[in-house]
């Protein structure tokens, strides 16, 4: 597992350049351009299970969801940041990408530290230091449990139809 470390206010143009927004939509199309204008090594070196640690306001800017779709498809286990921009945060919920807002863990991390993560219990260990983060509200956990917003919506539509029959 590798930890990718970035700073404050990483915007979605850096995570996925706007010039590709209307030509790349599938995970396969998105992945080669991930973080292209921030860290050109990322797309070729990222591996399943890697973690991103960043500062405040991660994912600010455009509402494009390609960064979230791409990072999820690339196998990013979680993004731990001091804070997230709100549209990015919603997009992550909708795609089932795990975001953890935990400034203490971000500040504690030193290169080489082992990171252990238990999302269900809301626990995080960074280089042996333990942090907790609160669970999401029930309404939002239901979306994650369903595997993202679209599977959740499909379930709801099926239930609604059933109840009308």
């Amino acid at each position: 597992m590798r930890v990718w470390r970035y700073g404050d206010d990483i915007n979605t143009d850096q995570l996925f350049p706007g010039k590709y927004t209307y030509t790349c939509a599938t995970p396969e199309e998105i992945k080669p351009h991930l973080l292209e204008d921030l860290d050109p090594s990322f797309a070729s070196e990222v591996r399943e299970g890697d973690i991103i640690i960043a500062g405040k306001n991660f994912g600010c800017g455009s509402s494009r969801e390609q960064p979230v779709v791409g990072l999820r498809a690339a196998g990013i286990r979680a993004i731990i940041a001091e804070s997230f921009a709100r549209i990015f945060y919603r997009a992550a919920i909708n795609q089932g990408l795990i975001l953890i807002e935990c400034p203490g863990a971000v500040h504690a991390y030193r290169e080489g530290d082992e990171i252990l993560l238990d999302v269900e219990r809301g626990e995080l260990s960074v280089g042996g230091k333990r942090f907790t983060f609160p669970p999401l509200p029930e309404e939002i956990l239901a979306i994650r449990r369903a595997g993202g917003l679209l599977p959740y919506t499909r379930e709801k539509l099926r239930e609604k139809r059933k109840s009308q029959e």
Binding site: I87, A91, L149
Partner: peptide
């Protein structure tokens, strides 16, 4: 709106905010 600048309509007193494409689909 599936565009971050949807917040513009606050100019006329609307509660307007951006969302992602997947949420727009739902």
């Amino acid at each position: 709106g599936s565009d971050s600048h949807t917040c513009s309509y606050g100019a006329v007193g609307a509660f307007a905010s951006g969302i992602d494409r997947t949420e727009a689909a739902a």
